[in-house]
Write a protein that binds this DNA or RNA. Structure first.
Lengths: 144, 144
DNA sequence: TGCAATTAGATTGTGTACAATGTAATTGTA
DNA sequence: TACAATTACATTGTACACAATCTAATTGCA
């Protein structure tokens, strides 16, 4: 165990996280292509399907994304007709994002994706649960 | 449990993976700034510090990255003077990537980063080990 | 109440990611 | 041994991600 061992990629925890995240997202692509969404657009829609209406700031804190990333993503979703972007009347700084009927309708096609994805992650339910717990434990710490 | 529950972001495994990966990489930034590397450049250097010399293809399979991503990353590392890129004499299609003395020297500064990062992931050694195991289990499956 | 500080989004610039395609070198085989 | 198929890398185009900065609206406090 020399002082450089910590630099070996196989001793890193961040690297398999990074690689895993990318590889799984890559496996989403063929399914997401069918409903013409990218992964980022998909997770934004996922929050909207649940919350119906929220500000860019709220969406950003759900997704760990800032306005620099979300503004163009939301403009694309608006161009596709899935959402509406409207300044909040009570506070003009804030932008309300809401689902259109088309956006709401998309939920049915999207609901077919998670079951199809399940097979690419070969973990037992217990392992998946443990992974989930560990990831959220890190996330809760990383944000103080 | 209705048919849309699978679409809730808190029921997804991919989302915390994606968010965790990004958040941890973001925490690397101040440390990586000190040695003027991005995260992608850092993991490429990590493989080189270990293997000394390898082709773009080999590097790509270590990092789960293709030439479209690696070519510009490696050109930047070459411009910084940390690596050399030279066509393989035995097979001109292949490009050999090797460390320069400057690149080798960088290893000492880089070795200070992993210990500093440890504190941002508040997992016990057992939990970190389990997370590591689960991530590599997924990675081994995702690539058939 | 006036105005400095804060806040919410948008913009800009840099750096990945990756699919699709292009090019040149090498291989396999009829 | 020609030449089609394959391989390695580079290029192009699209889409994030994020730091830094900008603008306009709102808040807080002297």
């Amino acid at each position: 165990m020399d002082k450089y061992d910590c630099l070996k990629i196989e001793n890193q925890l961040c690297f398999p996280l990074y690689a895993c995240s990318k590889e799984i997202i890559r496996h989403y692509k063929p399914f997401l292509d069918e409903i013409d969404l990218t992964y980022t657009q998909y997770i934004a829609m996922m929050v909207l399907w649940e919350k119906k209406c929220l500000s860019v700031k709220e969406l950003g804190s759900c997704l760990y994304l800032d306005s620099g990333t979300l503004t163009p993503v939301l403009k694309k979703l608006e161009a596709k007709g899935y959402i509406e972007r409207k300044r909040c009347e009570a506070d003009e700084r804030s932008l309300n994002v809401t689902l259109t009927d088309e956006g709401e309708k998309l939920k049915d096609s999207a609901a077919e994706i998670p079951p199809k994805m399940g097979s690419c992650v070969n973990l037992s339910p217990e392992e998946a649960g443990e992974l989930y717990r560990l990831l959220y434990k890190i996330l809760s710490n990383v944000n103080q």
